[in-house]
Simulated assay, not measured.
Amino acid sequence: MIGFFIKCALALGSLWATVSLFMNGYWGWGIVMILVTAFIGIFFFRHERIILAFYQMRLGNQEKAKHHFDKITAPQFLPKKQRAYVIYMQAVLGAQENGFSKTEQSLRKALAIGLRTKHDNAIARMHLAGVCAQTGRKQEALQLLAEAKKIDDSGMLKDQIVMLQNQLKMAPSANQMRMAQMMGGRKKMPRR
C-alpha cells in the first residue's frame, strides 16, 4: 500500500515537473521528463516484482522468482490479470511447501480471476489435475485434463497430458487408497 502511494507521488511530481518545464520554455528537458513520466506510468500497469520474477523464470532461477513473487504482499491492489498471475505462480512455485489444499485453492482462485493466455489456462488445469490425482479424486482429474486438452490448441502440452492420463489409469481410486490406509498399507509377500 505504501508503494502505491509512493508511485502516485512520483507520477504526480513527474507530471507537474513536465508541465512546468514546458510552460517555462525548457522544451528539451520537457521532452526528457515526458520519457521519465512514461517510465513511471508503466509501473502503474506492471508491478516491478512481477517483471523481476518473470525475468528470473526466463533465466531458469526458480528460487529467486519465488522470492520475488513472495515479496508481493498485497496482490489485491494489482490489476485483475496480474493478480491472477501472481496467485497462479505462487501456487505453482510453492506447491511443495504449501501442501495440496492451499495449492488447489490458489489455482482455482487464479482460474476464477482469469489468466490471460490459453496456454497458461491449460497449464493451470493440468497442475490442478495433478493435485486432484494426488488427493484421490481421479474423475475430477480426468475432467480437468480433458479441459486442458481442449484449451491447448497448439498441442504444446499434448505429451504431458497423455502422460498424466496414463498415470491416472494406473492410479488407485480414492476407495482403494482409503482401504490401504485402513489395512496399514500394502503387505509385502515373503519370498518363497
Rank of each mutant, 00 (worst) to 15 (best):
G3T: 13
L10R: 04
A11G: 08
S14C: 09
S14V: 01
T18A: 03
S20A: 13
N24H: 14
G28W: 01
G28D: 01
W29D: 12
V32Y: 11
M33K: 13
I34W: 05
L35S: 12
L35E: 01
L35T: 06
V36K: 02
V36A: 10
T37V: 02
T37L: 04
T37G: 08
T37S: 06
I40Y: 04
I40S: 04
I42A: 14
F45Y: 15
R46G: 08
H47V: 05
H47K: 03
H47N: 07
E48C: 10
L52K: 04
L52Q: 15
Y55K: 14
Y55R: 13
M57E: 14
R58M: 04
R58D: 04
R58H: 01
R58A: 08
L59T: 01
G60Q: 04
E63G: 08
A65F: 00
D70T: 11
K71Q: 12
I72D: 06
T73M: 13
A74N: 10
Q76C: 01
P79N: 11
K80P: 02
K80I: 05
K81C: 02
K81A: 15
Q82S: 11
R83Q: 10
Y85W: 06
V86I: 06
I87N: 01
I87C: 00
Y88C: 01
M89H: 07
Q90K: 15
L93S: 05
L93Y: 01
L93H: 07
G94V: 07
G94Q: 06
E97R: 11
E97N: 08
N98C: 02
G99W: 09
F100Y: 09
E104M: 09
E104G: 02
L107S: 12
R108Y: 10
A110E: 05
A110G: 03
L111V: 03
I113G: 07
G114Q: 03
R116C: 09
T117A: 01
T117V: 01
A122S: 14
A122G: 08
I123H: 02
R125F: 12
M126K: 14
L128P: 05
C132I: 06
A133L: 11
G136Y: 02
G136I: 13
K138V: 03
Q143V: 06
Q143L: 08
L145H: 03
A148L: 10
K150C: 00
D153Y: 14
S154Q: 15
S154K: 11
M156C: 04
Q160W: 02
I161Q: 11
I161E: 11
V162M: 03
Q165M: 12
N166K: 12
Q167E: 13
L168K: 03
K169G: 00
K169C: 00
M170D: 15
A171D: 03
A174Y: 07
N175P: 08
M177C: 05
M177E: 10
M179D: 08
A180E: 14
A180H: 04
Q181T: 11
P190E: 06
R191P: 09
R192S: 14
